[in-house]
Simulated assay, not measured.
Amino acid sequence: MPDFVGRFITLEGGEGAGKSTQLRALATVLRAHGIEVVETREPGGSEGAEAIRALLLTGGQDRWSPRAEALLFAAARADHVEKTIRPALARGAWVLSDRFLDSSRAYQGQGALTDADIVMLHRIGSNGFLPDRTLFLTLPETEAENRTRARDGDATDRIGGRDRDFHRTVADAFARFAAQEPERVRAIDASGAAADITDRLMAALADLLP
């Protein structure tokens, strides 16, 4: 039997919220508690899913139709869950993922597809598997744009490079998920010093710690 109960934690939010930075910081703190931590990301996180990531994030804005894009994300996630996440949880590790289902709901569940469509694809591909806790990093729009520009310059991927209205709709969707599922999704202020943000994230995980 594992010494610890495996936990699946996802970090969500719009471009520039600091998810990748905070995931690494959280992993460091959790390891200091003696917990095995697996750091992963979406799309990606397994051999098959990383191959799909390359297809999704490169090329022109019109490379994939909304339906094809949603199916590719669902396929990548199914492989990620099967090959990486579930085996790690089974041995008692904590899995930290930079994005998961809620990103698909926010980014692909608008326009041609609905939130219900994305959830149905997830039910088919990953048997409806959900995180134990989702940390939604919130940041004012202007600050998020400045961070993204400082990080990427003009080299955005085909999803990150979409217009301001698109990203505003994404932010609204994340906020809606947090309001609808307060036990699973916790909104965390991502402004200020990095160490302070990490403290806020750890506080939101305190009830799950061994």
Rank of each mutant, 00 (worst) to 15 (best):
D117M: 09
E143R: 15
G48I: 13
R123N: 10
R77K: 07
F73D: 09
A195T: 11
G6R: 06
T134A: 13
F174T: 00
I188D: 07
R77S: 06
A49Y: 00
P140G: 07
D132R: 06
P140F: 01
L209M: 14
R67E: 14
Q61I: 14
L89T: 02
P140S: 06
L209S: 04
A76P: 04
L121A: 11
E50Q: 03
I52F: 04
H80R: 06
G14Y: 01
P140D: 06
T21Y: 06
R176C: 12
V5E: 13
E42Y: 05
G48H: 02
V170Q: 04
S191A: 14
H33Q: 15
R77V: 01
T84N: 10
H33K: 15
D79G: 07
D115F: 00
R24A: 12
D115I: 07
N146Q: 15
A54Y: 07
A171R: 15
I159E: 12
V81M: 09
T148S: 14
S191P: 07
R123A: 13
G18W: 04
L11I: 09
G6M: 04
I118E: 00
F166H: 00
A88F: 08
T138F: 08
R91T: 08
A76C: 07
G48P: 06
S46P: 04
A70G: 12
R186I: 15
R133G: 03
T156P: 06
V185Q: 03
P2C: 03
L137M: 08
A74Y: 01
T28L: 15
A54D: 14
L205W: 03
A190Y: 01
L26W: 03
H167D: 02
G45V: 10
A106T: 00
G18F: 06
F4Y: 14
A203H: 05
L113M: 11
H122I: 02
E183I: 13
R77F: 07
R24V: 05
A70K: 10
F129I: 02
E36Q: 12
R162N: 07
E15M: 12
A88Y: 04
F177V: 13
S103E: 04
A178S: 13
D3N: 15
L57Y: 02
E12Y: 08
L56S: 00
Q61V: 14
G111C: 09
D98Q: 05
F166Q: 04
D62A: 13
S97N: 13
A70D: 09
R151V: 03
A150K: 09
G44C: 05
Q110K: 03
R158G: 01
G153I: 08
R91N: 10
A193P: 15
D207N: 12
D189L: 09
D115S: 06
A203W: 03
A206I: 05
A194N: 11
S103A: 15
R67D: 11
F129M: 12
E82T: 05
A78H: 05
R99Q: 01
L208C: 09
L56K: 01
D98P: 09
L30S: 08
R91V: 07
T28S: 11
L30Y: 00
D165E: 14
R41F: 03
